[in-house]
């Protein structure tokens, strides 16, 4: 916990990020308690500017916008989190299998991964979305997870390949430990930092895909998704072309931008939290390793600068 504060305080932007993400998580969890009913239609309150009563103004049907944003957070975050979990799960499994189960499995899985990587993921998701249908959130998350596992599987595979060459894995194998034991106890802990960081990255990807599908209007509308609001704002309601309706357009945009910003800034925090090497370095100097020492004693190159020498 203390390291967490330490990491947070190093850059002010990180605090902003954590606050943003927590705000949206709060909305997702407590939104339906704060606003138990869908906002009501008021035909004579169309496109009201922000006021105490309507903090973000009202939409084309005179509905209060703020509850729509707050209620939308649950759907967006739930599906995105689920999709990110699926992505990371598939990526890790395929990467582990390719890296650990020998060359035949490896080449088959990697050919497949390469193929998925060449297909533009959004296009594939679109086609899957309308052929399979997006009847419920879990299926939707499953389809979205098709977008990002390829790169992850490749990275995990190459990491497994290098880890299994290291002595501690060979020792475990030599001692007759089972495959599962070696994978769970020796290899996975070493991959964990990468997996956690990638979980955050997958989250931004999933938010992009999910809200995008609603924005294009290819999946059945859910009343409270920011993508649906954006779709109505740019399309059906004509809000896009009137400066009066600014709030209806800008609210979902702001929500998406702030959420993505929050996730990205938190990725930075998580990155440093799980990778101890990024902490406690004095200007990148580490006191072990002969070559490093050598380099500092000869001089450090800085682009366009002078050669500085520490031994004179």
């Amino acid at each position: 916990m203390r390291t967490f504060w330490h990491i947070l305080r190093k850059r002010k932007m990180r605090i902003v990020g954590v606050v943003l993400l927590l705000m949206f998580v709060f909305m997702a969890i407590f939104g339906p308690i704060i606003y138990p009913h869908q906002p009501a239609i008021h035909p004579n309150e169309i496109y009201l500017p922000p006021s105490w009563h309507h903090l973000l103004g009202t939409d084309y049907a005179g509905r209060n916008i703020l509850p729509q944003i707050v209620l939308g957070a649950r759907n967006v975050l739930f599906v995105a989190a689920l999709a990110a979990l699926f992505t990371v799960g598939i990526g890790t499994l395929i990467g582990l299998a390719a890296g650990y189960l020998g060359p035949i499995v490896d080449s088959i899985l990697m050919r497949f991964t390469d193929m998925v990587l060449t297909i533009p993921s959004i296009v594939l998701i679109l086609i899957l979305a309308i052929t399979i249908g997006m009847s419920n959130d879990v299926i939707m998350a499953g389809i979205l997870s098709f977008a990002g596992w390829g790169g992850m599987a490749r990275a995990i595979r190459s990491m497994v390949l290098s880890i299994r060459e290291r002595s501690f894995v060979e020792v475990s194998q030599g001692l007759g430990m089972s495959r599962t034991y070696v994978i769970v106890k020796e290899i996975l802990p070493n991959l964990l930092p990468y997996i956690v960081v990638h979980l955050m990255l997958a989250l931004t990807g999933a938010v992009y895909g999910e809200v995008g599908l609603f924005f294009l209007g290819v999946v059945p509308f859910k009343a409270d998704n920011w993508g649906v609001m954006l779709n109505f704002a740019t399309g059906g309601s004509g809000a896009m072309y009137s400066t009066r309706s600014l709030m209806f357009l800008i609210s979902p945009i702001l929500a998406i931008v702030l959420l993505q910003t929050g996730i990205v800034l938190c990725t930075d925090v998580v990155n440093e939290l799980v990778d101890p090497r990024l902490r406690n370095t004095v200007g990148g100097y580490q006191a072990n390793g002969r070559r490093r020492q050598r380099r500092t004693s000869v001089g450090r190159i800085s682009v366009g600068g002078r050669v500085r020498s520490s031994s004179n």
Binding site: V207, V211, L230, V257, Q260, T261, V264
Partner: peptide, 8 residues
């Protein structure tokens, strides 16, 4: 952040 903001 620019990378994470969806194109739409």
């Amino acid at each position: 952040i620019a990378h994470a903001i969806p194109v739409y």
